[in-house]
Design a protein around this nucleic acid. Structure first.
Lengths: 149, 149
DNA sequence: AGAAATTATATTGCATACAATTTAATTGTG
DNA sequence: CACAATTAAATTGTATGCAATATAATTTCT
């Protein structure tokens, strides 16, 4: 009776998460289009601006994506001139991702994006903060279970 | 300095939402596989168990999906014998979705799914409730903006 | 009534996601 | 050292998602 004991769509937290995530991505789309990135390409660049010279594996761990998704995506970013993909001479199994100068320059243009999104969101800082905290907590639980299995 | 004023990946609420949604869907996958549904097919069936005899348009509004996604998905559910897609005699533009008896029977097998997910989630009812409320509130804001535009 | 505008699906094209398999390189072991 | 096991990417196949376009049916408007 409390929670999760019915099949009603709007009672499903999974559905709220799914829709909320998609709607937020929809807000990003026109803004990211200005700098020529899709949403997934954007979070990939965020990860690389934070730390480059990473392998596909490391990048995938941070982004929760596997090589099946990343390989073609990284090839597109490479074709766009934002990154380079080079086999590690030390261990040829690894492909190391580096930013090009164009990729590094793009960070400046992206600086304003979080603020722009926040401003158009009508949501208070407290509410976002609280949501953020809860999502991270839940994520921790989800990851914990998996390693348990 | 407070929130959303940096490009750090883990500071982005959009990323927390995106990852959390994917991880939750990952939890569902093996359970839904038992009844032969993907996650999107599952939420589509949830919507239909609640109210059938709906058009693709109405279903799309409830699920936040357009005909480009729904048409092929509904054809698969039809091929699986769970639903029927029939042109409305009154208005041939509409396609009305109805459950077959197999589709209706499947609801029984799905009854336990929310509970099973909750039990393996390690998250408290209060936490889920709170997250759910906040997601709905944010969703309301996001939808509000769109109609404004 | 008949053309124009609108509406509901379907289709096409592009970009993810992810499981499963393949390939190539490296490591561990007898 | 040779071979099995492991590991990292890439590839293949299936299923979304969504923008843009196409198609067909209905409505509106003159």
């Amino acid at each position: 009776m409390s929670i999760q004991e019915t099949l009603k769509l709007d009672d499903q937290i999974c559905f709220a998460l799914y829709v909320c995530s998609k709607e937020v991505m929809k807000q990003y789309r026109p803004i990211l289009e200005e700098i020529g990135l899709t949403y997934t390409q954007y979070i990939t660049m965020l990860a690389l601006w934070e730390k480059e010279n990473v392998t596909v594996k490391e990048l995938g761990a941070k982004l929760y994506l596997d090589s099946g998704t990343l390989t073609p995506l990284l090839k597109k970013l490479e074709a766009a001139g934002l990154i380079s993909r080079v086999r590690d001479q030390q261990d040829e199994r690894n492909v190391v991702i580096t930013l090009t100068s164009a990729g590094r320059d793009l960070e400046q243009q992206a600086q304003s994006i979080p603020c722009r999104l926040f401003e158009q969101s009508e949501v208070s800082v407290e509410e976002l903060q609280s949501l953020h905290t809860q999502l991270h907590r839940m994520l921790g639980k989800l990851k914990g279970e998996q390693s348990q299995t």
